[in-house]
Amino acid sequence: MLDALLLSAGYNAAVAMIGATLLGVAAGPVGVFMLLRRRALLADAASHATLPGIVLAFLVNLWLTGEGRSLPVLLAGAGAAAALGVLAVQALQANSRLSGPTAIAVVLSGAFGLGVVGLSYVQTLPVAGQAGLDQFLVGQTAGMRLADAYLIAGVAAVLVVVIALLFKELRLIAFDPEFAAAAGWPVQRLDLLANGLLLATVVVGLTSVGLVLIVAMLIIPAVTARLWTQKLGRMALLAAAFGGVSAYLGAAASAGIHHLPTGATIVLAAAALFAVSLPIAPLSRPRRAPTALEPPV
């Protein structure tokens, strides 16, 4: 365990830990904007919708190349399915009586059911490689290769750069989309971009945290950061720090203690940071709503 913390538990473990940490750093700020735009749970629908996409990508790749497992192919399938999941939630919200959370619940459970059925079918196939598919459920970085870590690092870097560039635009549409639209900002396209950031986080998060728990990496570091600051910039930086530290500690625990799924240990680390913050952070107490009766200045 100590070896793992110091990145000396072996080359593979070190690669996996660095990959997971970079993902945690990127997921924090993405989660901040999703949380403030009240879209955090959309990530849960997107992540569960990846499972049928992973299975389908495996089958198509198997059929085309004779080998199913290839991380870029599986992640491409996951990304396409996650995008479909988000579109399905939005279509249900716009064209039916379902509210946002209800639409998310329908898509999440429906897609996940489909994925589990597909996964069971794939397990019966007399081919190699399918055994590792269920690692996407709760995450397992043990088998991560250097190329995979590069992929995660690349995506994480893009996410951080996009958020840094569009920080004020994302802040505006998260706080007051109506004012933003009246002032001429393309709110729909910015929302689409924000959803793209969310999908990218979910897809690369599959490898380390897994699809069941990735939503936690978007939400927990962001809400922990909110307990410490009233400033959006600091909240984003703190969320990145909390996300990175949780992923690092969780991946180390998973590498040090055999057979612990990485996703679970990372999320436990994030939850521990939240639990420690709650009693000591300055903004933990319930907010008192200001009223018109307060003395005027």
């Binding site: 998260a174 706080f175 004012f179 009246a182 002032a183 909110r226 400033k231 959006l232």
Partner: peptide, 28 residues
């Protein structure tokens, strides 16, 4: 064109200072 939306249309628990919000009028 300047616009003042209804006060209740936004979440005032948003992490921002008064200055942050006013600066939004200058983003364009």
């Amino acid at each position: 064109v300047g616009y003042v939306p209804q006060r209740a249309s936004v979440d005032w628990d948003f992490p921002a200072s008064a200055l942050d919000v006013v600066a939004m009028g200058l983003y364009r």
